[in-house]
């Protein structure tokens, strides 16, 4: 039966099949197949989903292109800024907006930490 199936496969298919088998053997030898098999339970999938899909990650992913774009535009060697320099920078509306974001982030982080530790 198996040899009959093999006979009907094209060269490309046989090649792909061999590679897949090789990959599966590795997964099997390392115990990954067994582990995956045991992990594939609705409770695990549900738990993982609710950990990954929450308000925070969805918001982060939604803004990932904005964040990465801004990261890409940071100069290679940003200039040093001291206390007086900071006061000067605060006149820049873009810096103000960025600072506002960081402060809002700090506030919500503080809130989350408070409820975590109290």
């Amino acid at each position: 039966m198996a040899s009959k199936v093999l006979e009907e496969l094209s060269e490309n298919e046989t090649d792909a099949l061999k590679k897949t088998l090789c990959f599966l053997m590795k997964l099997n030898e390392m115990g990954i197949l067994d582990t995956l098999n045991h992990l594939l339970e609705p409770e695990v999938i549900g738990g993982l989903s609710s950990l990954i899909l929450n308000k925070g990650t969805l918001k982060l992913l939604d803004n990932v292109d904005t964040l990465l774009k801004s990261l890409g535009e940071v100069p290679k060697e940003p200039k040093e800024v001291g206390v007086f320099g900071l006061l000067g920078e605060l006149r820049d509306p873009d810096v103000k907006r960025g600072l506002g974001f960081v402060i809002a982030l700090l506030r919500s982080l503080g809130k989350a930490l408070k409820s975590n530790f109290s």
């Binding site: 609705p42 999938i45 549900g46 989903s49 609710s50 899909l53 929450n54 308000k55 969805l58």
Partner: peptide
């Protein structure tokens, strides 16, 4: 659908209009 139910559930809970 039984595989996707918990995944959709997590998404719908995270984006519940009440939560958002």
């Amino acid at each position: 659908p039984e595989l996707w139910e918990p995944i959709f559930k997590a998404y719908f809970e995270a984006t519940n209009p009440e939560v958002l």
